[in-house]
Amino acid sequence: MPWTPPVHVLLSPITADDGTQIEQITLKPLFYAAQKEALARAGDDEDDQFFELAQLATGLSVKELDQLKRPDYVSIAHYVHEMSTLPASHFLQSVGEGEPDEVTLLQPLAAAGRSLTSLTLEMPVLRATKAMKKLKTAKERAEFITAHCTGLMLPDLAYLTVPDWTQLQVRIDDFLNQPAAFFRNATSK
């Protein structure tokens, strides 16, 4: 069953920029590239970061968001925090523990002319990890090895939701840091 974005019913309705009343907000998933840009705009201040991400998650303007009562904002901030830190498996609770290298995506990903609902991860070859280590920043290294392990092109990564990105990083971290015995034990029955 696919994931559906949650709806937050406001304790106190707000006035939209067009003068209509907003009584509920369908929260949107955060996407990797958009989140990265929002965090760069916000700088180091955590409150500014949450505000930028709340705009992405709600689709509200600054004027609309500023009208929210604090409890509504706290609920949205909680959603933003979960969306920013938890893997897709948290949101896809109906998906059981299956094959760890087959990652079900929170939202379909349009890549190579297809709509992908899952990605199959491949362990990186040593040549790829050597190339990865030559890149300057941790973000560049993570993007390079994620593209290598998923078979996606670097630009495709921008359209992953943040929980999908997080889910992939957990398994890729295993690939990069665990010995062979870890994988044998995980697959033996």
Rank of each mutant, 00 (worst) to 15 (best):
V125C: 00
V80Q: 08
A88G: 11
D156R: 03
T129S: 05
A88M: 08
M132K: 04
L154E: 11
A77T: 14
Q107T: 12
T137G: 13
T85M: 12
L157V: 11
A158Q: 02
A77E: 10
E82M: 15
M153H: 06
F91S: 05
L106C: 03
S75F: 09
S75W: 03
V95R: 05
S94P: 00
L152I: 14
G113V: 06
P87W: 13
L119W: 03
G96F: 02
K134T: 11
E140A: 15
A158G: 12
Q93R: 08
M123H: 06
A110C: 05
A112D: 08
T104D: 01
R127V: 13
V125R: 13
A128C: 06
H78R: 13
R141H: 06
T104M: 07
E140R: 09
A111Y: 05
A111E: 02
T129V: 15
K133M: 09
V125M: 04
L86V: 02
A110D: 14
L105H: 05
D156E: 14
M132E: 12
T117F: 08
D156V: 12
R114H: 09
T150I: 13
A142Y: 01
A131Y: 05
V95I: 07
L86E: 10
L116E: 07
L92W: 08
Q93C: 03
H78M: 14
G96P: 01
L126C: 05
T85D: 07
L105W: 10
S94N: 08
H81L: 15
I145G: 00
V80M: 11
M153T: 08
T85E: 11
S89M: 03
A131G: 02
M153S: 04
D156W: 15
L154T: 09
G113N: 04
L105P: 00
D101S: 11
G151M: 09
K133G: 12
Y79N: 13
P124H: 02
G96I: 02
P155T: 10
A77D: 09
L157Q: 02
A88E: 01
L152D: 00
E99W: 00
V95A: 11
P124S: 08
G151E: 04
L92C: 06
L135R: 08
T104N: 09
L92S: 04
M132L: 06
Y79C: 14
M123T: 10
Q107W: 07
K130S: 12
L135E: 01
H81F: 15
L126A: 14
M83L: 15
E102Y: 04
L109Q: 03
V103H: 01
V103G: 00
L92I: 04
V103R: 00
R114N: 10
D101C: 06
L92V: 04
F144G: 01
L116G: 10
I76L: 13
L92M: 15
G151A: 11
P124V: 11
K133W: 00
A110Q: 05
A88Y: 04
L109K: 00
F144R: 02
E122P: 00
P87Y: 12
D156G: 06
K139W: 07
E99P: 02
T120K: 14
D156H: 14
G98R: 02
L86N: 09
H90L: 06
I145R: 00
E102V: 08
